[in-house]
């Protein structure tokens, strides 16, 4: 520690020589944290729901902490690249990240060694259950009718909404297996995300899209898409008329996408102690609630240990489905 201090002093001199120095910030420890801008890594691209969630959390957190929060996209590899970048960052509290449900999926596929245990959990900010969406003019009036159709001709209907082995793929495959059907009874057509999947649904390319309700919202509002059920124990607040799978099919099946703030493993306790209450304030702010409800996103809170447990449980249940479906390595 002493060594680094001397090192930094020497460099300060160099900094003065450069002629741009103003003051020295507090010591390099967590006291006075944060005293410089924080980077928030997002493993998904600009323009998606994850990105906009990160950006609203970032701008509200900025007001709480009094330091700029730079939202940084690290995309690619179905989230592996960005999630790795978060885990590999210096655990000094100046790099945090937005983890998504995929962290509990990619290691089962053998893409990375990384699991949710490689992070310091800070706060769960959002959860959106999967739902079953079909075209407005589809032949099936409700979910039981759709299930009958799948049973009658297994392997003929197609679904899309994410890549091979993505969260919505698992949602439908797991649901089918809960019904006692083959997970492949609905053929999965990979797509780059829910938006292209829905576009394909409209174009008649696929028969159903098991994405979250907010993603299908514009088309539901436009009267082009019907949501038959949500895969959750309780109905969606924004769409109370859409029944749960429990209600209409008698199958209890909870699956969905979540987003939460994490830090690299081993950040000082002071950092977590500063960030978690700040995030809680953000979560409870009217701006955040307003933003999420306008986008149709669901809010769900858990912090620290509880969030860690949540991620571990999510990890286990996804792993079970992936093994069942044959996607796990």
């Amino acid at each position: 520690m002493l060594g680094t201090h001397i090192h930094r002093r020497a460099l300060l001199a160099a900094g003065i020589a450069l002629g741009a120095v103003t003051t020295l910030a507090g010591a390099a420890t967590a006291q006075g944290y944060p005293d410089r801008p924080i980077t928030l890594i997002v493993p998904w691209g600009a323009g998606g729901g994850t990105d906009s969630t990160a950006r609203i959390v970032g701008s509200l957190l900025e007001q709480e902490l009094g330091q700029p929060i730079n939202v940084v996209n690290r995309t690619g590899g179905s989230g592996v690249v960005g999630h790795s970048a978060i885990a590999e960052a210096d655990p000094d509290g100046y790099t945090i990240g937005l983890a998504t449900v995929e962290i509990g999926m990619m290691h089962w596929q053998g893409l990375t060694e990384l699991t949710s245990a490689d992070y310091t959990p800070l706060a769960l900010m959002n959860f959106d259950p999967a739902s079953v969406n079909v075209r407005e003019d589809a032949d099936w009036a409700d979910l039981p009718a759709l299930i009958e159709a799948i049973k009658a001709n297994p392997g003929t209907l197609t679904a899309s909404g994410t890549g091979q082995g993505g969260i919505w793929h698992l949602a439908i495959a797991g649901f089918l297996s809960k019904l006692g059907l083959e997970p492949g009874a609905v053929r999965w057509v990979p797509s780059e995300g829910a938006a292209p999947g829905l576009q394909d649904l409209m174009a008649g390319g696929v028969d159903l899209v098991p994405c979250s309700i907010p993603e299908a919202r514009a088309l539901i509002d436009a009267g082009r898409v019907r949501s038959l059920a949500v895969m959750s124990s309780k109905p969606n607040e924004a769409f109370p008329d859409v029944p749960t799978t429990q209600d209409v099919a008698g199958v209890s099946w909870d699956i969905g996408a979540w987003r939460g703030i994490v830090a690299p493993k081993g950040v000082p306790d002071e950092v977590a102690a500063r960030l978690i209450p700040a995030l809680e304030k953000v979560y409870n702010s009217s701006e955040y609630a307003d933003f999420m409800s306008k986008q149709g996103f669901g809010r769900q809170w858990a912090s620290g240990e509880a969030f860690g447990t949540f991620m571990a449980e999510s990890n286990e249940s996804l792993g079970a489905v992936m093994k069942e479906v044959g996607l796990a390595k």
Partner: peptide, 16 residues
């Protein structure tokens, strides 16, 4: 433009 350019050795210095 919020590009996360690394501060490196100059991290302890505050820039205005």
């Amino acid at each position: 433009l919020l590009v996360p350019l690394p501060a490196g050795l100059l991290a302890p210095i505050r820039w205005w």
